[in-house]
């Protein structure tokens, strides 16, 4: 589970999206429907969906560019996501701390330091 976070989860937003899709494995989602459900911006929801489709936790619905479905690439991955869901409901703060202490965040702040506009940090 720690590995799942270390390798695939970069933000609480992403985690929320993953868990939402995991709770409804039969349903396919678009950026808009995810955004409505979680009350986040459709643009960033779309980006997160694409990220996770690339890392093979989700898959694109066949023949559709915009629809995604929960599809972990291995049973081990499914187990880890289920474990993460339990942990997130029982020990939310620990999970959030794990996400925020990731080394990738330091690297991100490096890249983000070169953003001249700051508004995109506030409205997410």
């Amino acid at each position: 589970m720690r590995r799942l976070i270390a390798e695939h989860i970069d933000s609480v937003e992403q985690l929320e999206i993953l868990l939402l899709l995991q709770q409804h494995p039969e349903r396919s989602w678009t950026a808009e429907s995810v955004a409505r459900e979680l009350r986040i911006s459709p643009l960033s929801a779309g980006d997160r969906l694409k990220d996770m489709a690339r890392s093979a936790i989700l898959s694109r619905v066949q023949g559709s560019e915009v629809e995604f479905r929960y599809a972990p690439e291995s049973p081990g991955m499914a187990e880890a996501v289920a474990g993460l869901a339990t942990a997130y409901s029982e020990r939310r703060v620990t999970v959030i701390n794990l996400i925020f202490s990731k080394p990738v965040d330091k690297i991100r702040t490096f890249a983000d330091a070169f953003r001249l506009r700051r508004d995109d940090d506030d409205n997410g």
Partner: peptide, 21 residues
């Protein structure tokens, strides 16, 4: 310009990596 941007980033996030760079 890079130095200024990184310094600004450092004052906001306090990540030492930004100070070194």
């Amino acid at each position: 310009a890079c130095a200024v941007l990184l310094l600004r980033g450092y004052t906001q996030n306090r990540v030492p990596l930004l100070l070194w760079s």
